[in-house]
Computed example of a mutant assay.
Amino acid sequence: MKRIALLGGTSWPSTIEYYTKLNQLINQELGGHHSCPMILYNIDYHEIKSGYANGWNEIPGLLKTEIENILKLNPDGLIICNNTLHKAFDLIKNEMHIQVPVFHIIDLTKTYILENNWQRVLLLGTKFTMEDDFFKQPLIDAGIQVEIPDLHERIEIQEIQSELAKGIITKEYEEYFQKLTNKYVDYDAFILACTELPLAFEKVNSKPVLINTITLQCQKAIEFIIN
Results as ranks from 00 to 15, higher is better:
59 I>N: 01
59 I>G: 00
59 I>V: 15
59 I>T: 06
60 P>L: 05
60 P>V: 05
61 G>T: 07
62 L>S: 07
63 L>C: 07
63 L>F: 01
63 L>P: 06
63 L>H: 00
64 K>E: 15
65 T>F: 09
65 T>H: 13
66 E>R: 12
66 E>T: 05
67 I>S: 02
67 I>T: 04
68 E>T: 10
69 N>L: 07
70 I>F: 01
70 I>W: 00
71 L>S: 09
71 L>A: 12
72 K>C: 11
72 K>N: 14
72 K>S: 14
73 L>Y: 00
74 N>W: 09
74 N>L: 12
75 P>T: 04
75 P>W: 01
77 G>R: 03
77 G>I: 13
77 G>T: 12
79 I>S: 02
79 I>D: 00
80 I>W: 09
80 I>A: 04
80 I>G: 04
81 C>S: 05
81 C>V: 03
82 N>Y: 11
82 N>W: 06
82 N>Q: 08
83 N>Q: 14
83 N>V: 15
83 N>K: 06
84 T>M: 11
84 T>W: 09
86 H>N: 12
86 H>S: 02
88 A>T: 05
88 A>M: 10
89 F>W: 06
89 F>C: 04
90 D>H: 15
90 D>I: 06
91 L>I: 12
91 L>V: 07
93 K>S: 10
93 K>H: 11
94 N>L: 10
94 N>D: 15
94 N>A: 08
94 N>E: 15
94 N>K: 13
95 E>W: 02
97 H>P: 03
97 H>K: 14
98 I>C: 08
98 I>G: 11
98 I>E: 11
99 Q>G: 09
99 Q>S: 14
99 Q>Y: 03
99 Q>P: 02
101 P>Q: 14
101 P>A: 13
